[in-house]
Simulated assay, not measured.
Amino acid sequence: MALLLKLEGDDELLYIASEASLTDELNSLIYSDEDILVDSNGQVYGVTTDSRGIVVLEYKHETLSLEDVTLLVQAHEFSLAQVCLTKIQFNSIAEAIQALHFAQ
């Protein structure tokens, strides 16, 4: 499992390596209905809680393209002011998500 977490109103992305790390991140954040998770296929999930307060991922019936994910990663790197944006290119969405893991 590898996901990226995009918080509403923030260009910074969080790399999520496992269900446990997702739980840890969500427990430490105040998340909104506009936050999204993107999996390695580009599928988009929202973060909600059920009536017991348990975090639930809700498939948004939306899929981001490789170009969309690349733009998210470029905005993330620009917000950190560390990398030349034109050098950020990927062959797959999974590769784009993994790049965040290696950048941490």
Rank of each mutant, 00 (worst) to 15 (best):
Val38Asn: 03
Leu85His: 03
Ala96Val: 03
Ser65Leu: 03
Val44His: 05
Phe78Arg: 05
Val47Cys: 13
Ile97Met: 09
Lys87Trp: 03
Ser51Trp: 13
Val47Met: 08
Ser92Asn: 08
Glu25Val: 11
Ser51Gln: 13
Val38Pro: 04
Ser21Met: 06
Val38Lys: 02
His61Gly: 02
Asp24Ser: 14
Leu37Arg: 04
Thr48Gln: 14
Ile88Met: 07
Val83Leu: 09
Ala81Asn: 11
Leu13Gln: 08
Glu58Asn: 03
Ser28Cys: 08
Ser92Val: 09
Glu58Lys: 02
Ile97Glu: 03
Met1Arg: 08
Leu4Gln: 01
Thr49His: 04
Gln98Glu: 15
Tyr59Met: 00
Leu100Val: 03
Leu5Trp: 15
Gly46Trp: 03
His61Ala: 13
Val56Lys: 15
Glu19Tyr: 12
Val73Ile: 14
Val73Gln: 08
Leu57Tyr: 14
Leu37Met: 13
Val55Arg: 12
Ser18Gln: 04
Gln74Asp: 06
Leu100Lys: 03
Ile30Gly: 05
Asp35Val: 06
Gln89Asp: 10
Asp39Ala: 12
Leu14Val: 12
Ala20Asn: 09
Thr63Trp: 01
Thr48Ser: 15
Gln82His: 04
Leu7Trp: 00
Leu14Gln: 09
Met1Val: 12
Ile88Asn: 05
Ser79Arg: 00
Val69Ser: 04
Thr23Asp: 14
Gln104Ile: 02
Asp10Lys: 10
Glu19Lys: 14
Glu95Asp: 15
Thr63Glu: 15
Leu57Lys: 15
Ile16His: 07
Leu64Val: 08
Thr70Met: 07
Ala99Ser: 15
Gln104Ala: 08
Leu13Asn: 08
Met1Gln: 08
Ser65Asp: 09
Glu19Arg: 14
Asn91Leu: 02
Ser92Met: 09
Thr48Leu: 11
Asp11Ser: 14
Glu25Lys: 07
Glu95Arg: 09
Gln104Gly: 08
Leu100Pro: 04
Ala20Tyr: 10
Ile16Phe: 06
Asp39Ile: 05
Ile54Lys: 15
Val47Ile: 15
Ala94Asp: 13
Ala99Lys: 01
Phe102Ser: 12
Asn91Ser: 15
Thr49Ser: 11
Asn91Met: 02
Val47Trp: 09
Asn41Gly: 15
Glu19Asp: 14
Phe90His: 01
Gln82Val: 07
Val44Met: 10
Leu66Ala: 02
Tyr59Val: 00
